[in-house]
């Protein structure tokens, strides 16, 4: 099988677009994480994110976050038009640093939870959710 000059160029262009696109999508997610953590490193343990593996309806996906001793937990949906979902700030009377809610997901994507722990360090957890019907209209 031989490639013409035109085909080769086309494939190269396609490959370039493929590599650039995912970066574009996650750029704002990176911004949000940097804003929350101030660029600090994140540990892999210390926060737990519970989300379904498959969500039939992206309009209402139940999730649960928990991070013992955390002062705040931020939840991001990396594949949504705007990645922010919610930020939980826990006060002195919080019984446990956990919360459950229902969120919208535009499509199959990773949901990320980042916890700010009491000692000022950060922890991150992510879960991949397959969405059958997206939840952002359009």
């Amino acid at each position: 099988m031989e490639f013409s000059r035109r085909e080769t160029l086309g494939m190269a262009l396609g490959a370039a677009v493929m590599t650039v696109l995912p970066l574009r999508v996650s750029a704002s997610t990176e911004d949000r994480i940097a804003e929350f953590t101030g660029g600090a490193d994140m540990a892999d343990t210390g926060v737990e994110l519970t989300a379904p593996e498959i969500a039939e309806n992206g309009n209402t996906v139940p999730i649960e976050v928990s991070a013992p001793g955390a002062t705040a937990i931020m939840v991001l949906a990396t594949g949504n038009p705007t990645p922010g979902v919610a930020t939980f700030n826990f006060g002195p009377l919080a019984g446990s640093q956990s919360a459950a809610t229902r969120i919208r997901l535009a499509g199959t994507q990773d949901v990320v939870a980042i916890a700010k722990l009491a000692d000022g360090s950060f922890a991150k957890a992510s879960a991949s959710v397959k969405v059958t019907i997206g939840g952002c209209g359009g």
Binding site: V61, V85, N89, F90, L93, A94, T101, R102, I103, R104
Partner: peptide
């Protein structure tokens, strides 16, 4: 304070 949640459009 018990909990203070900042909510964005991705909440159902």
């Amino acid at each position: 304070l018990v909990v203070d949640v900042t909510i964005e459009p991705a909440v159902s």
